[in-house]
């Protein structure tokens, strides 16, 4: 099936009239956007357009920024993530995140992957071993590191470190995976591996990915949303956005006339 509009899968993440302010600056203006389960939603747009802010709103990482204010709602499976009853710890377990620059802890490969399960109360060694193995397999890293799980994560290459960070995020069994330009610091080969991985991961997860790379958005995503100056300009099936966008601004950006 091509595209997202007539898609059979359910809506997993849904933003409704989301405004975000940093101090007196408004970073997001009334964003309403749906991300479907088992689909990849790409967020594109020039630097400072609010796509990362939007991404970081979904797991409430923006809460850590002093002076941040928000209006509007974000629904995860139909439930507002800002409800007073929602535990942000539980939200972040369900909504994993992979950052632009790979940020493994200066610990061993094993400790990196088992960090999440451990903080969520798994202490049985056998269970941890199993989680580490399966998540490293899912992140397509197992074969490369299975003989040196005790080695420092910092001894891995950049691409391997990023796949380790993906494994680390998967280890807490999230439902949604947020990826903030996960391949922007990687060489083309490592990038290709990450894209391949995204393709496999969408079988099990809902993925939202921020990218500066148009080709990447076209290759990996089912739905594309174009942000500009904190507003959502256009959203639609990726094939349509890239071949026949409804708005002139979108076309200008995609064809590289600006941005």
């Amino acid at each position: 099936m091509e595209g997202g509009s007539n898609d059979a899968t359910s809506v997993k993440v849904s933003a409704r009239d989301l405004d975000v302010f940093y101090g007196s600056t408004q970073a997001l203006h009334g964003i309403s956007l749906d991300a479907r389960a088992n689909r990849v939603t790409a967020l594109i747009g020039p630097s400072g357009c609010g796509k990362s802010t939007f991404l970081r709103s979904i797991n409430r990482m923006n809460d850590l920024i002093p002076g941040m204010r928000r209006q509007g709602r974000i629904l995860l499976d139909g439930a507002d993530i800002h409800d007073p009853g929602v535990d942000v710890v539980d939200l972040r377990r369900r909504v994993g995140m992979v950052f632009q620059r790979s940020n493994p802890f200066p610990k061993s490969i094993y400790e990196n992957v088992s960090y999440g399960p451990r903080i969520h109360g798994v202490s049985d060694r056998g269970t941890l071993d199993e989680i580490v193995r399966t998540t490293l397999e899912q992140a397509a890293l197992w074969d490369e590191v299975k003989d040196r799980l005790g080695a420092s994560a910092l001894s891995l290459s950049g691409g391997q470190q990023q796949r380790l960070c993906i494994a680390r995020a998967l280890a807490v069994e999230p439902e949604v995976l947020l990826m903030d330009e996960p391949a922007s610091a990687l060489d083309p080969l490592a990038t290709a591996r990450i894209e391949e991985l995204i393709h496999e991961l969408k079988e099990r997860y809902t993925i939202l990915i921020v990218t500066h790379n148009m080709q990447q958005a076209a290759r990996v995503s089912d739905t594309t949303a174009y942000f500009y100056l904190g507003r959502l300009v256009e959203v639609g099936p990726t094939a349509q956005i890239f071949t026949n966008p409804a708005k002139q601004e979108t076309e200008d950006y995609i064809t590289g006339r600006f941005g």
């Binding site: 797991n59 990482m61 850590l64 710890v89 539980d90 939200l91 972040r92 377990r93 994993g96 995140m97 950052f99 620059r101 940020n103 493994p104 802890f105 200066p106 960090y115 999440g116 903080i119 969520h120 960070c165 680390r168 995020a169 807490v172």
Partner: peptide
């Protein structure tokens, strides 16, 4: 200690 290390931990649901 880099912000990235703290964020990595928070993003996994750490307190």
């Amino acid at each position: 200690v880099p912000v990235a290390a703290r964020e990595a931990s928070f993003a996994l649901g750490a307190t």
